[in-house]
Amino acid sequence: MKNRRKFIAALATTVPFLATAATNTKKKQEVFKSCPSNVTGPMSDRFGQVIVTDQDKKKSWFYEELIHDKLVLVSFTSIRGEKHYPIIDNLVKVQDMLEDRLGKDVTMLTITTNPTKDSPEDLKKLADSKGAKWQFITGEPDDIRNLLLAFGIKGSISGLSWVGNEKTGRWMTKASRQHPLFIAEAVARLSTGKDHKPFLVDLRSV
C-alpha cells in the first residue's frame, strides 16, 4: 500500500487546479448536481447538462440540442491557441467537403479551450475571418471545462477532433490537421442511412 499512497499523494497535486476552476466562477451551485438530461442517448450520461453560447450568442443545451441523435465533428481551440496551432483553416476545407450536409444532419462545433477569455464576439471574429460557418462554443468556464473533461481535452491547444454518431454511439478521433479528406471520410463512414459511405477514396488492396 505504500506505493499507492505515493500515487494518491501525487494525485493531490491536481486538486488546486480543480479548486481554482470551481472557485473562479461566482455561480452558486448545488452540493450535488446530478446533471439530468431530458433526452438519453449512448453517451448522454457523459455530458453535463449545461447551456453553451455560440458566436451569435445563441444559447443551447449542449447535449440535447447539439449532440443528441446527431452526427458531430467537434474540435477544440481558442483565440490564442489558434495563433500557435491553427486548425480552423483545415476544418474549413472539411466544411466545404460536407457541402449541404453541414447544419442539417452533420453538426460541426469548435469548443473554446479558454472560456474565461474567449467571448462570443471574439469567436465570431475568428469564425468570420476564416469563413467558418459552423458553431463556435463558449459559456460559463465551469461548464466548458466540464465539456472539455468529457471529451478528454487537456491544455489550451488541442489538435484532436472527435467525430461521433450519437444515433449509433460510435465515436472516433481524427487529428484536426489531418488531411481534410480523411476527416470528411470519418464523417461519411460513421454516417448511417443514405449518407453512409465506407470511404471517400478506396485505398483497399485490389
Binding site: 479548486a19 452540493v31 446533471c35 453517451m43
Partner: peptide, 30 residues
C-alpha cells in the same frame, strides 16, 4: 481507498473558500 483519499483531499480544497455549496458538476458517466 481512493475514494476516501479523494474525499479527504478534495473537500477542504473545494469548500475551503467558504462557499459551502460549491460543487463541481460532473455528469455521472464522465
Amino acid at each position: 481507498f481512493l475514494k476516501k483519499g479523494a474525499l479527504a483531499l478534495t473537500v477542504p480544497a473545494i469548500f475551503g473558500a467558504g462557499n459551502a455549496n460549491a460543487q463541481l458538476c460532473r455528469a455521472q458517466g464522465n
